[in-house]
Simulated scan of single mutants.
Amino acid sequence: MHAHTLLTFIPVALLLAFAPGPDNLGVLALGVSRGRRESLGFAIGCAAGCLNHTLLAALGISALIAASPLAFHMLQYSGAAYLTWMGIQALRSRGVSLNRPQPTGTDNGFKPYFRRGLIANAINPKVALFFLAFLPQFVVPGAWPAPLQILVLGLVFAVCSTLCFALIAIGANRIGAWLRGRERFALWLDRITGGLFIALGLKLAFSDLR
């Protein structure tokens, strides 16, 4: 691969990572409503999910899924259902308050939200189609084998996404920390977050992606 290819790819990847979408909107909402660990976990999970789509694109599996209406719609509705489930979980929450200790045994913390971010990204067909269309544009003919170039580009994109999502999570947490310190705001933050995830799930379910 040529150095100028990466120098062109990285700014585009950073710009796309910051562009409003389900991943960074979810990171933003969780940073405000839940806290830094949860939002960072979700952020890094979403970025790690990019590696899944990179591998599928490199192996040609994403193309097969896109060519199969049944497989594509199954993935689409699974992703929509998972986002909606996350929204319902947030709606059922009692809210995170800095003045009230969290009950033991809850699924708060980095790992549970890393897992949620990973799954939410990995089963989103819109991301699969994006990687299938986006990464090959930066493949240089006659350089490394195309699948290997796609893997490298996907890894770089995942790193860029991690940096962007982490900045969003940290910034949102600072705003959320002030709001969560006020009892009456704490519950509504989760309600808003839940509504956002449900809206994203419904949008994915009823989107005509084909």
Rank of each mutant, 00 (worst) to 15 (best):
R184F: 13
F42S: 00
I198K: 03
M86T: 00
Q149L: 04
L196M: 13
P125W: 01
R92W: 08
N24M: 06
G181T: 06
L16G: 07
R34T: 10
I192K: 01
H73F: 14
F197D: 00
T106M: 11
S33F: 02
W188I: 05
M86H: 00
K126G: 12
L55S: 09
S68Y: 11
A143E: 09
T84L: 13
L28T: 04
L179V: 14
G201C: 08
D107H: 13
A47N: 02
A47G: 08
N24T: 07
F114T: 01
A48T: 13
C46V: 13
V156G: 02
M74S: 12
H4D: 12
V27D: 03
A57F: 06
T84D: 08
T5M: 13
A166L: 09
F9A: 04
M1F: 08
L163T: 07
A17K: 00
S93Y: 00
L56A: 14
V159R: 06
A177W: 11
L28G: 03
A43Y: 02
I10L: 07
G21E: 09
T106P: 07
V12H: 13
V12I: 10
L200S: 01
L28W: 00
T84H: 06
L189H: 08
L16F: 13
A71D: 09
L6F: 15
F157V: 05
L6A: 11
T193K: 05
G201A: 09
R182A: 12
V140C: 08
A17M: 01
P69T: 09
P20D: 01
A90K: 08
G142Y: 07
A67W: 14
I61E: 10
F197Q: 00
L15K: 14
G35C: 12
G105A: 04
A48L: 15
L56V: 09
L51K: 05
A80I: 02
V139N: 01
I61D: 07
A29F: 03
L135S: 07
R37N: 14
I150W: 01
I170R: 03
A177F: 12
A122R: 11
G109H: 05
T5P: 04
W178C: 10
S39Q: 05
L179G: 12
G194T: 01
G41Q: 03
L51Q: 10
R182W: 06
L151E: 11
L70C: 05
N52S: 12
